[in-house]
Design a protein around this nucleic acid. Structure first.
Lengths: 180, 180
DNA sequence: AGATTCCTGTAGCAATCACTACAAAAGCAT
DNA sequence: ATGCTTTTGTAGTGATTGCTACAGGAATCT
């Protein structure tokens, strides 16, 4: 690995740190450069342009999230309600909150068709669903896939309520799942 | 009503139109002014500042959405699955899509604590939940409230999947609801 | 040593942002 | 018509955006 690649690797991690902390809206090239301890000029040396930078850094963020989710998940496949309760609880973890905030920003931009956000969030959504399918019980693969999609939708919805400042409602919603 | 107030009223509707079409990110003062057929200078004459403008225009948008939702809702309270299927189908309506996109943008900003977005999205979420509680069957008011929160979360989650470009997964998720 | 490529700092670009100072115009009461 | 308030246009503020031209220095190769 060349010096440039080694440094680039280190830079990517710091970029991910900053994006998680300040959000995409707080991630101008200048702000990112300051967080990395370099100049914006250097960032554009490591990356073709800002889109390239974002794609790379968000990829790193997605990797980290996958690891966090795996850590929070039960070892064996569990029923829908169980997995949702587990993850909903984990979502309260301050370590996970920044990821949720970035995910929301990403999807909001994606809804408007902004690139590279649209492409990235599609890939992340696929990752979420695949992850859920692996952790849900059920024989039929198709059915498990549908359940996984519903799981992701529900979890994302809870997160959205939380983001809107209605964490109490989100908590009540989690309670309502068991009741149904 | 003074001339100023009359004009302001008309302006608000055009602002709402533009925000729905171009999104919050596409709603700079200059862009809004062009859509209204005025100068940015005039917008800041009608409104104290951009926050004031946004709060007002988003209020108007929320009013419109309420009317649209009422039109799409069944006349009598229905079970969870029924209401969700109905609304999920309605969400495919191109007339509703802009509202969903703005809602996402609003919540994403809210997650980062941006004002006035945070305050506004909290109020809108409350409105959603109250609306759902009215259209869901159930005797116990508390339980209906929790069901309503879960309903909003699920619907928002489906919308989010759609925004991420995974409308197919969202459709599968709707199917999975009946199966559970 | 000389040439060539790689790295990085300074400075600046044009565009956009929300917002404002200033003043001309328009309306209206006297 | 005179004076007064309300409405509007012009032009500009300073800050920030992503990005680039230029050039000096460092490292590497011949």
């Amino acid at each position: 690995m060349s010096i440039r690649e080694t440094r680039r690797e280190a830079v990517i991690d710091r970029l991910a740190d900053h994006i998680l902390q300040a959000g995409l809206s707080g991630s101008s090239l200048k702000a990112l450069a300051a967080a990395v301890g370099a100049s914006d000029r250097m960032l554009l040396y490591y990356f073709r342009n800002k889109d390239d930078l974002l794609t790379t850094a968000l990829g790193r963020i997605a990797e980290r999230l996958t690891r966090l989710l795996d850590a929070a998940a039960p070892p064996e496949p569990v029923p829908f309600e169980t997995l949702l309760a587990t993850l909903a609880a984990a979502m309260g973890d301050p370590a996970l909150k920044p990821y949720m905030e970035v995910w929301l920003e990403l999807v909001a931009a994606s809804a408007r068709g902004v690139e590279p956000h649209r492409t990235i969030s599609g890939a992340i959504a696929d990752g979420f669903i695949a992850w859920a399918a692996e952790h849900l019980v059920g024989e039929d693969a198709d059915q498990r896939q549908a359940q996984a999609a519903l799981f992701v939708a529900t979890l994302d919805g809870l997160m959205l309520l939380d983001a809107a400042g209605r964490s109490d409602a989100a908590a009540r919603a989690v309670g309502a799942i068991r009741a149904r």
